[in-house]
Design a protein around this nucleic acid. Structure first.
Lengths: 143, 143
DNA sequence: GTATATGCAAAACTTTTGCATCCTT
DNA sequence: AAGGATGCAAAAGTTTTGCATATAC
């Protein structure tokens, strides 16, 4: 991934902090990170970065369409890499794991419902909160 | 509505603040209120109430099943009266109006999707963000 | 070289907690 | 009377902003 080119493409200067943050999301394999998560990881990597910069960059990336901001039930914003494909989320109550899915039936039905009520859909967010029945559920609440 | 009886039913003492807050939601016709909204309305009514109490009572009501807490994209929690019937939301980008709906197809599909992936659904939240095409859209962003 | 981005510190905002007093049962 | 609930103030947690310095182009 040419981080520098990707930043320029969306009209942002290719600065150090921006490149590190974008790479972090690119390498995190669809992970959902809070501003604090990003900040700590960069500190761990030995970066000299400020939390304010992280917040500013995350917001810029959201506006540029590089990241998507979500509001889970924690009250804190989490960000994920925008792979272009829209998808919804299943969040495990027990281990906090987030799995993604996309379903045509649901997507379609939403559009119908909204239009029948005189709305034009611009976006939507569907979160299913569930219990993970898998044996490999790490069961580590609070992380 | 017998506010006093409703509170006792869920095991809470029928105190002044709790009764006022429950009545507020009952009379607000399905309105979605933040803690701050509730606090201000009670102050306007001349109540001597603290914001901390509002937060405590709202959380108690949520646990008791009297209210439902939502996280819209604002970052602040909003509460609504729990009428027992689950429903999802269409939020108008322009006027902020929230319309509710329930759709069996979507409900069913969610259950199927989650179970196919080894999850047992406990709850879910679906928010459709849309533009209101109605002529009576008040168009008052920021309220 | 110039405009923008950054780090730090301080502020703003939402929510929680400690504690003395008050109220419900 | 006893225990829980309240208001106030202070704290904790998240996000934003002001400003001097540093960096990208």
């Amino acid at each position: 991934m040419d981080t520098q080119a990707n930043l320029r493409k969306v009209g942002l200067k290719a600065t150090g902090p921006r490149m590190r943050i974008l790479e972090l999301f690119f390498n995190s394999d669809g992970g959902h990170l809070t501003a604090e998560d990003v900040f700590k990881r960069l500190l761990d990597e030995g970066e000299d970065i400020g939390l304010a910069t992280v917040y500013r960059v995350l917001t810029q990336f959201e506006h540029a369409g590089l990241l998507v901001r979500h509001h889970f039930e924690t009250g804190r914003a989490v960000f994920e890499f925008n792979q272009g494909d829209h998808h919804d989320h299943i969040v495990c109550f027990q281990c906090g794991r987030v799995e993604e899915f996309f379903d045509d039936v649901i997507e379609h039905r939403q559009k119908e419902i909204a239009e029948a009520r005189g709305f034009v859909v611009r976006d939507h967010a569907l979160y299913i909160y569930a219990e993970c029945t898998r044996t490999d559920c790490p069961h580590r609440p609070g992380e």
